[in-house]
């Protein structure tokens, strides 16, 4: 089948549209891929439709991927450690510091705020069963709120105040397991709302996690798998079940 013949252009166009839309079965899809490798007319038709349709994803709400994706990419490309990342400090790790836990107690009153949030959440048939974490700085003012239904694999994080992030830096969210090193949950937005995909439903992922924290990290997240920058917000995991 010579799809690039001028009298076949309509057929090619229709096939290319379905290729890009994704409705073609695997065999036809692979066949078109093969033809496109040697036939520029066919390749251009496929790309044209892909681009045309890809524009339809503009405005789709983003979902922050887990940080290990970026780590895996860096590893596969053989990038060396981020030069501007802070090395491991000589002092005790920040998550062991007393001030952090004191801050958490202070932030307790911010919970009233979270309850307010729950009230404006869309009403469902069932009562809300999930977690709420109000992340606040040392001034105890809420900066970010994280919520997730117990059975959901997503944690929704919303910036509820102006969050200052140094240029070229990102905010990373961490689980703080009791007595162990923090575990990354992904990057969180400095403004607006975002959803973090979890590896397990919220109720399980946060089962033994008393608190979360947010640190300032290089773009793409901590290169080491442990927090490298300053911790700016912390909050207790409050369970509503």
């Amino acid at each position: 089948m010579n799809l690039s013949r001028p009298d076949r252009s309509e057929r090619l166009d229709a096939l290319a549209a379905e290729y890009a839309l994704g409705t073609l079965d695997g065999r036809t899809r692979r066949r078109l891929d093969r033809i496109a490798q040697t036939d520029p007319t066919v390749a251009a038709a496929l790309r044209g439709w892909e681009w045309r349709l890809a524009a339809l994803t503009e405005g789709m709400p983003g979902i922050t991927p887990p940080v290990h994706v970026w780590e895996a990419i860096r590893q596969r490309l053989g990038f060396s450690g981020e030069s501007d990342a802070a090395g491991p400090g000589a002092s005790a790790p920040w998550w062991a510091s007393l001030a952090l836990w004191r801050g958490l107690a202070l932030a307790g009153f911010a919970l009233a705020f979270a309850l307010g949030l729950l009230l404006v959440a869309p009403t469902t048939e069932r009562p809300y069963e999930g977690v709420v974490v109000v992340l606040a700085g040392t001034d105890a003012k809420p900066a970010l709120v994280a919520t997730g239904e117990r059975g959901s694999r997503f944690l929704t994080v919303k910036a509820v105040a102006t969050v200052e992030v140094p240029a070229g830096r990102a905010l990373e969210l961490w689980m703080l397991p009791d007595g162990r090193a923090p575990v990354s949950m992904g990057l969180v937005p400095a403004s607006g709302i975002d959803r973090l995909a979890l590896r397990a439903p919220v109720g399980i992922a946060l089962q033994d996690i008393p608190a979360l924290a947010v640190s300032i990290e290089p773009p793409g997240g901590s290169p080491t798998g442990a927090p490298t920058g300053p911790v700016v917000y912390t909050g207790r995991v409050e369970r509503f079940y």
Binding site: M60, P65, P219
Partner: peptide, 11 residues
């Protein structure tokens, strides 16, 4: 990556 990953991941 920082600017586009969340959009692409959602897709």
């Amino acid at each position: 990556y920082r600017l586009t990953a969340s959009h692409l991941y959602a897709v």
